[in-house]
Amino acid sequence: MLTPFYKVTLLAGWLLSLLPHRGQAQARGIWAKADIPLVYNRQYEVGNILFDPSQDRPDFALRPNGRIYQYYNFDTTFPGGRVELRKHLLRALPTAAGSSDSGFLTVRFVVNYRGETDRFRVQALNSEYQPQAMDPELVARVLGACRALRGWLPGQIDGETKDSYFYITFVVREGHIQDITL
């Protein structure tokens, strides 16, 4: 006959068995797919830029299926290629004194299927890759130069142009544009 102590132990063991397993079950790899709650937006991808009525054009045309690709999926580019775009931007952004900012200023945006741009976003980091507010005048000049770019060549799938994200990183040293990577 079981003593009350054993009954308590068995009950506790049964209750523990109901908890998610660590170790053995995971080692067999049988739980993961069914165990992860799918409460998130399944369409979301790293880097998606959501429409913001306070800064984005409501009439910016996008393909109706809603899929915005990455530029490297199908070579969205600029007339003359990235080497020429870099030279064009370096010419458009002459050295200006007045700030001691150093780091990376990345401008990311959407090139739509017509070769137009919108949904611009900026990330400013210091040389240690930490967020840093940069001189607003410098940011405005860089953003203005990117917005002014015309004639983008959107990438294509099966002969049809598509929407895609593109970004340009400005290497800032003591307030001026030292380099551009794209």
């Binding site: 991808e45 790293v46 880097g47 990455q70 490297y72 990376f104 990345t106 990311r108 990330q123 980091l125 890759y129 930490q130 967020p131 994200y165 970004y167 990183t169």
Partner: peptide, 9 residues
Amino acid sequence: PFLKRGDFQ
């Protein structure tokens, strides 16, 4: 994917 999409932080 953060690297490829420009989120260097």
